[in-house]
């Protein structure tokens, strides 16, 4: 059996009466007439991505400005370029993913879950290469404080992004929530890299990077709750 034979069988099975009654079409047109008005289309996805990206950068910088740029001051020039270059690229990809999740029928190059996975792998790889201090002091106490700080800034970054894209329509709320959470999480990590002067490898690898998956999971959970709310309203 060839590919064309399967095609032919599928086409045959699909042939049949699938015409829509004209009264149904009239009923649909009449139902739309009630609330008919011109609408302003959403801006292009590149504009939306740029706006969302800069909001996240602003949240990270504002957070570090409030707490102090101790981490940034302690880094070498090359470390600054590499770390913030990678974080910027990942945040841009997450912003793009979030914008695409809020506009139906847009092209995807990578799914939100895969982007989260690749982001974590890239950050673990880079931080593992750059931070070579393998001693640990007050691993849990300092770590939990950093995680909480990162999440504290991930929340406003994700919320502001969500507010900016509130005119959009998420066909999958969980994916949209996950993308927003990842974007917020990367803003949180950015804030921690600017602020935290603790360069112990274990601390950075565990507690700083953990902000992204935790924030993404929270975002996905919120998306699920919003989906349930939307479903119960219908």
């Amino acid at each position: 059996m060839k590919h064309e034979d399967v095609d032919e069988i599928l086409n045959r099975a699909l042939r049949g009466p699938h015409d829509v009654k004209s009264e149904v079409l009239h009923r649909i047109a009449d139902s739309l007439k009630v609330s008919f008005a011109p609408v302003r289309p959403l801006p292009s996805s590149i504009v939306l991505t740029a706006v969302v990206f800069f909001v996240c950068v602003a949240v990270a910088i504002a957070g570090a400005a409030r707490a102090g740029f101790f981490g940034f001051a302690k880094m070498h020039l090359m470390e600054r370029w590499i770390i913030f270059g990678l974080l910027g690229a990942l945040a841009w990809a997450a912003a793009r993913s979030f914008v695409h999740a809020m506009i139906p029928g847009t092209r995807r190059h990578i799914t939100a879950a895969r982007l989260l996975g690749w982001s974590c792998v890239a950050l673990v790889g880079l931080f593992g290469l750059l931070f070579r201090d393998y001693e640990t002091h007050q691993f849990f106490r300092l770590g939990i404080a950093c995680l909480a700080t990162g999440l504290l800034y991930a929340v406003p970054a994700a919320l502001f992004s969500w507010l900016l894209l509130r005119r959009g329509f998420a066909v999958n709320m969980v994916t949209a929530g996950l993308s927003a959470g990842l974007l917020g999480g990367l803003a949180g990590i950015g804030m921690l890299e600017l602020h935290c002067p603790n360069f112990e490898a274990a601390h950075v690898l565990v507690w700083h990077i953990a902000v992204a998956p935790i924030s993404s999971a929270v975002g996905a959970g919120m998306g699920w709750l919003l989906h349930l709310r939307r479903a119960s309203r219908q």
Binding site: L32, P41, L42, S44, M102, I103, P104, R167, F169
Partner: peptide, 8 residues
Amino acid sequence: HKVRHTYR
């Protein structure tokens, strides 16, 4: 109809 503004 509700989300027609999301089309570019």
